[in-house]
Design a protein around this nucleic acid. Structure first.
Lengths: 238, 238
DNA sequence: GCAATAGTGTCTATGAGACAGTATCCC
DNA sequence: GGGATACTGTCTCATAGACACTATTGC
C-alpha cells in the first residue's frame, strides 16, 4: 500500500441543505454560483458549501455550522449529517468528496446577507423532489436525498418543531407537520401524540387572537424525539 | 476564498464495520494494525479500511465494497453508509476524514485471508457498545455508532435477514433478531409481522430436522423493509 | 407415547384515525 | 348571538403482545 504522503488526495467539501418554512411553504436556502471564468457551473444555483479548512474547522460538523452561520447568521439550528458523496466526476476540478448536512431553522432568525454579491443566498420553494431552478454539480441529487430524509423522519419524529420559533401553539406545530408532509393530519390524533411524546411543555402564556386564545408551548428537549409509530392514514400500513 | 489547488487537503479514508452472526453471537470483523515503525496505533485492533484511491474507486461505496471484498471475499453484502468523521486529531498523521460504512453478511460466505499476515482479519464478539479489545484511532466511537444504528434499525426493519444464508426458516430469522436485539421476542407476533411485511417468500422446501420440519423462506427483495411500528414489549412505548 | 420444535388461535390492551361535539375568545 | 379557532370526547378498527393450544417430525 502506498504511503499517505504519496497518495493523491481528493478535495473535501461540506454542503448544507438549510430548510425553513417561508410563506407557509417549505423552502431551501440556495446560493448562485459565481459567473467568473474557471468556476464550474457559472450562474447555476447550488447548496451553500465549500472546502473544509483544516485550520479553521475542528470537525465536519463545525465546518457545516460555520457555513450555516456565514449564510444565515443562525448559531443554533437543528443540524444533522445526511451523508457523503464522492467521485471523480461530480466536480470538473477533480475527485471530490462532499459531506452533506441538513439543517432546520426558524426563518425569522435568519438575516440573509444581500450585500451586493451575486452569490447572495435566497430562499427557494421546494417543489416535489427539488426546486424549479437548475442546480450545479450533483446538488439536485443531494437536495433530493435531504428532502427524502426530512419527509421520512417527519413521519415519526419531532423534527418540524425546529422550524418554529421559541414558543408556539399546537396548531402552529400541526401546521408545520402538514407543510412538510404536504397533507392534512387529524387534529385529535396529532395532539394526543405530541403531548404523549412529552417533548414540549406549556410556557404558561397564551397567544392573543381574535378567536379563542391557544396555549403556548416550548421545547423541553433540544434533541428530536422518536415516536413509536409513523403517521399513517387508516389502512396505509399494509 | 482560496483556490482549491492551494488549499491544504485532508486525507480521506473509508472504514467498514462488518457484522455477522458467528457462534450465535453478533461479531464484528477487525484487523490488527501493523507493528512497523511510523504506523499509528501499532498492534491495536481497528475496523478494516484505508485510503480512497482516486483512480480505483469510482465512488465512496465502491471503495467500501472493495475493502470489504478484499477482507472477506464477499461481493454482495448489505452495505449502508453510516456517516463521516473528520478532524485534525483523529489520526496523528494529520487532518483526516473517514467515511464509515456498515455491512451485514452471512458468516458462511466469508473466507478470511489468513495468509501469514499480522493484519489478518478476525471476528470479535460484540460486547455492549463495542468489543473487548482496544481499538486504534477513534474506531471505538465509530463502532459504537455502527452498533447503535444497527440495533436501532433492527427494531423496525428487516435488516437481520441479511445476516442469514440464502434460505432460512422463520425460527432462524427470529433467532437473528434476538441475537442482535439481545432479548427475546414473541413468536406469534414475530411471524405475523414478518409475513405481513411481505419481504420473504417460501422456497417450497423444508428444513429436515429431528423434530417437525420448518418451511424455508428466501428474501423477495434485496433492499430492507421498514415496519410501521417498532418492536416494543407491552407498555414500553410510554 | 414422548420430546422437541413448528406453527396457529384467542384474548386483551393500546392507540390511531375519523368526526362530532364543547369551550372560549372578539365583535 | 355569530364566527372562528382551540380543545375534548366517543366510536371503531387494526394490531401488538401474551400465552396457550395444535401439528408434525424422529425415536
Amino acid at each position: 500500500m502506498k504511503m499517505p504522503q504519496t497518495m493523491e488526495r481528493p478535495l473535501a467539501t461540506v454542503d448544507v441543505a438549510i430548510f425553513a418554512i417561508v410563506d407557509n411553504a417549505l423552502q431551501v436556502l440556495l446560493v448562485r454560483r459565481p459567473d467568473c471564468a474557471g468556476e464550474p457551473f457559472p450562474g447555476c444555483w447550488a447548496l451553500p458549501g465549500g472546502y473544509i479548512d483544516v485550520h479553521k474547522d475542528a470537525s465536519l460538523e463545525a465546518c457545516a455550522m460555520r457555513k450555516l452561520r456565514e449564510k444565515t447568521g443562525v448559531r443554533s439550528p437543528y443540524l444533522e449529517q445526511l451523508g457523503s458523496w464522492g467521485s471523480a466526476k461530480r466536480d470538473p476540478r477533480g475527485y471530490t468528496i462532499t459531506c452533506v448536512y441538513f439543517a432546520l431553522l426558524n426563518a425569522e432568525l435568519v438575516t440573509l446577507d444581500h450585500s451586493g454579491k451575486v452569490e447572495a443566498p435566497t430562499w427557494q420553494p421546494v417543489d416535489g423532489d427539488g426546486v424549479r431552478e437548475r442546480l450545479g454539480f450533483d446538488h439536485a441529487t443531494l437536495l433530493a436525498a435531504a428532502l427524502q430524509r426530512l419527509r421520512n423522519k417527519v413521519e415519526y419524529t419531532s423534527l418540524p418543531a425546529f422550524l418554529l420559533p421559541e414558543s408556539f401553539t399546537l396548531s402552529d406545530l400541526q401546521s408545520a407537520y402538514e407543510t412538510v408532509l404536504n397533507r392534512a393530519v387529524d387534529k385529535s390524533a396529532f395532539r394526543t401524540r405530541m403531548l404523549a411524546a412529552d417533548f414540549i411543555e406549556p410556557t404558561g402564556e397564551q397567544r392573543a387572537s381574535v378567536t379563542r386564545p391557544a396555549l403556548l408551548y416550548r421545547l423541553k428537549v433540544r434533541t428530536p424525539v422518536l415516536f413509536p409509530r409513523t403517521f399513517s392514514p387508516r389502512g396505509e400500513t399494509g
